[in-house]
Amino acid sequence: MLLEVRDLEAGYGEVTVLRGLSMTVASGEIVAVLGANGVGKSTLNNTLSALIRPTGGQILFDGTDITAARPAQVVSAGLIQVPEGRRVFPDLSVRENLLLGSYRRGRARRDANVERICTVFPRLRERFGQAAGTLSGGEQQMLAIGRGLMAEPRLLILDEPSLGLSPLLVEEMFALIGAINAEGLSILLVEQNVAQTLEIAHRAYVLEQGRFVMAGPSAELADDPGLRRSYLGL
């Protein structure tokens, strides 16, 4: 198993948000975590990225216990998050943002990786010298993903990559995530966009109030009457 989470509990001070989550991501999979606003999706991501210290449970990455690791160690291990709201470095150029993606990887393959990413996102090459803060929302999302890829992830966590994009761009974004995965990268896709996410994910977990209430292969979940009613409005 690439990622294995056991009975994970985390929160903010007195407030417990995650109440015992267990999940796995196998190598090569796209696994989705679905849930409405405020159920704890980003809290889960940030706990995996070690920005939040868990109050209980265990996180294993490729068999190594990273429950008590520091954020930089998690990045070095290859668990990379593209956060909600992109969080690009606004006054650094597109190029500098990409270079910082390889902060824990050194210079050896840096230029080759920039080249590869600019082939995937030609728009980034056009905006190479421009400050990231001046990019459109869609371009910033591409930059955030490109910056994450620069870190040579073994597992890429994407937190609501379709948020705030036009329907056409959302379509493009999901196709792109599928394409990145087809090249062998494992992805944990955290989304509210249930229909489109289930189309590209292999498996999914449904998060409600800090607990997984459903889990299974995407096709099964897409046919589940309860899920169709609550999340797809069908």
């Binding site: 920005l51 070095s76 998050q81 270079l99 993606g101 902060y103």
Partner: peptide, 20 residues
């Protein structure tokens, strides 16, 4: 210097790239 400028404006993003 790039890491310093990144931290100056976007701490969270910097942490997620493994910057201490």
């Amino acid at each position: 210097g790039r890491a310093i400028r990144a931290v100056a404006r976007e701490r969270q993003g910097a942490r997620l790239m493994g910057i201490d």
